[in-house]
Each structure stands twice: as structure tokens, then as C-alpha cells.
Amino acid sequence: MHYLRLFLTYLKLGLLAELEYRANFWIQLVQTAMELALALGGLAVVFRHTGDLGGWRPAELLALLGVYFLIGGLIRTMVRPSMQKFMEDIRKGTLDFTLTKPADAQVLVSIQRFELWKITDVGVGIALLAIALGRLSDSVGPLQAAMFGLTLLSGGLIVYSVWLILATFSFWFVKVENILVIFMTMYEAARWPVTIYPPWLRWILTFLIPVAFATTVPAQAVTGRMDPTTLGIAAGMAGILLVVSRAFWLYGLRFYSGASA
């Protein structure tokens, strides 16, 4: 309850801050439109040459693109801004303010900043999904919808945990923005189903930087190609990473308060 209210307060403050710079909204809209055009153009190019890509039909890839925009938008709206603020706070020493507050520091750090205009990506993602689902209506029932929701949630938690782990490194190295850039690059790769990549890259995208769970797996669920094993792996992976990232965070925090000036 307390944390829900905190979340809403931060959300409100994020909105207020964004309203201070209204031009950003239009810039963001243009940026999203360009990304969308580029992504759709890519799809068009591929399907001019072939009717299906590694077993994925056009409407199914559209669904995948929808998930890609949706999760990407959530990262850019909530996760990335908060983690960037966190790293900035470490560098400037203002993390001290967070740590002297009577609330869980991980929660405070994770919800402390929103870039609300990036929500346009989320909107585009939902729209793409809706269009794709309209074309795929024959293969999507309530079961698929439920699996989709579950895998999407797992994917979201996995991505959050990975970000937290990467950001936590800044307790030691202070500047780790570059790692986060690597993550976003890897995420770009996840706009295509991981099944089309060579095995080694598929392995990396599934287990090392598990972006596959954020895009390919939910798209599999919604296009009716999901088997229960994959669902189990996704949920298990989310649970494990949540625990691991929490433990790593706490360890980093102990290091911070043990060593920083």
C-alpha cells in the first residue's frame, strides 16, 4: 500500500517534470513514428522475398514487433530513467538521501524517475499487437491470452532484474552506462524471433542477456506456438533473476556503505 502510493507519487512527479518541457512530447512522438516506420519497413523488405521467416508469418512478426515496442517502451519509460538516476546519484553522492529514507532502497531506486513521453512506444506496441491479433484471431483463445499475459510479466521482470544487476555494478565501477548501451543493442536484436539466429547468438540472447524472454516468448504465446515447458522456463527464470538481482543489490549496498566516502 505504502509502495503503491509512492509509485503513484513518483508517477505524478514524473508527469509534472515532463510538463515543464512540453516540446519533448512532440520530439518523442516524431522519434517513435520514425522508429515505427523503420521497423515496419524492415518487415516489408523481408516479406517481399519470403512468405515466412523461420516459421513466422507476417502477422505473427507484427505481434512480435508489438511486444518489442511494448516492453521497450516500458524500459524507456520506467526502468532506464530510474537506473540512470541511480547511477547519477552514486556519482554525485546523492544516493545518501535515498539510503536515509525509511523505505526499501531498491524500491525507491527502481521507481524514482519516469520519462512519461516514452509511453508513446507502449501505445504503438499495443496498437501493433491489436492489429496483429485481429489478423490472427483464429489461433488466439483465452488460454493463449493468459499465457501471453504471464510471459509478458515474466519478460518484464527478467528485463528489470537484468537492469538492476547491471546498474548495481556502479557501486564498484561508478560509471557503467556502457554496459547499459550494450543491453539496449542486444534488445534491438530481439525485434526478430531469436529462432532465426545461429545457435550461439540464440544462447546469448536467451540466457546471458535474456531479452528473448521479453519479446520472442510472449510473441510465441500470442501466436499459439508456446509449449508449457517454455512457459515454465520463462516464469522460473523471472523468479530466479528477481531473487538473484535482489541479493546482488543488497551485496552491492553493503559494499557501498562499507567503503564509500
Binding site: T9, K12, L13, L16, A17, E20, K101, A103
Partner: peptide, 18 residues
């Protein structure tokens, strides 16, 4: 918070400290 009015930052602390 740099970009928002002071009173809104106060609101945040109010929420944090309940």
C-alpha cells in the same frame, strides 16, 4: 527534484515518510 515546484518535492517526502 530540479524541474518541479518545491511543494511537489515535499509531497514526495510526505509519501516516503508516510
Amino acid at each position: 527534484i530540479w524541474d518541479i515546484p518545491v511543494v511537489d518535492s515535499f509531497e514526495l517526502n510526505r509519501a516516503i515518510y508516510n
